[in-house]
Write a protein that binds this DNA or RNA. Structure first.
Length: 216
DNA sequence: AAGTTACG
DNA sequence: ACGA
């Protein structure tokens, strides 16, 4: 497992002057994949992946669902976190312990101890799906980091600045990688370029992403 | 606009 | 650029 500090300042001789920021943990999830895939299936059986609509009236190319006490949703009226699945009115499925443990450990390694996520957004990308540049800013607690796990096909992650127009760095995310960002990087714009169809040996022509947050 | 299209 |  390798870790990369995404935004350290090479001109500064001081170690970690800003505290924890943004890291890529390469291959971190690989030892758990055999437990993660059945856990995902249990969630998607109870709360199926679906394409939500943005406030502008466009249907997202990414299909999503949630687990945990809060789930991220969007419709014509805006973005929000909800305790229930708007498709069924039922609470979102509980967050499987294997997922919560993975998120806590990744956050800890990246320098964000005692991360206790209450929301896990599950995104499924098929070839051509994308996520345009956005900020994660609907969470009540912006002190907690974002933990983002990649499984399946690789994708190009865009990691930008605090304005949408800022030039974004491009980073290829692979099966098993975990990106963690918080502190002064918590509100950076980020996104995913349209996926190429490069089938993964286990997951086939899809990419699954979990994003853990403390939303409430 | 967590998105799309048009234009140089 | 548009317009959310």
């Amino acid at each position: 497992m390798q870790t990369f500090d995404l935004f350290s300042d090479p001109t500064s001789g001081q170690p970690e002057p800003m505290g924890p920021r943004a890291f890529l943990l390469r291959g971190f999830a690989l030892p758990r994949v055999d437990e993660l895939l059945p856990a995902i299936s249990r969630v998607t059986d109870a709360a199926p992946l679906r394409h939500m609509v943005t406030p502008g009236g466009f249907t997202m190319s990414v299909a999503l669902t949630n687990c945990g006490t809060l789930g991220w949703t969007t419709d014509r009226h805006g973005y929000r976190y909800s305790r229930t699945d708007p498709a069924t009115g039922l609470p979102w499925p509980a967050m499987p312990e294997v997922l919560a443990a993975l998120a806590r450990e990744a956050a800890d390694v990246a320098g964000f101890p005692r991360f206790e996520p209450d929301a896990c957004l599950i995104n499924r990308y098929l070839p051509g799906a994308r996520m345009s540049l956005h900020q994660d800013k609907n969470e009540r607690d912006l002190d907690a980091p974002i933990v983002s796990v990649s499984l399946g096909m690789p994708a190009v992650f865009l990691f930008g600045g605090h304005r949408r127009s800022d030039k974004a760095a491009r980073l290829e995310l692979h099966h098993g990688d975990i990106a963690v960002w918080g502190g002064p990087d918590r509100l950076r714009y980020h996104g995913i370029l349209p996926l190429a169809d490069v089938p993964h040996p286990v997951l086939g022509s899809q990419r699954i992403n979990f994003t853990f947050r403390k939303a409430g």
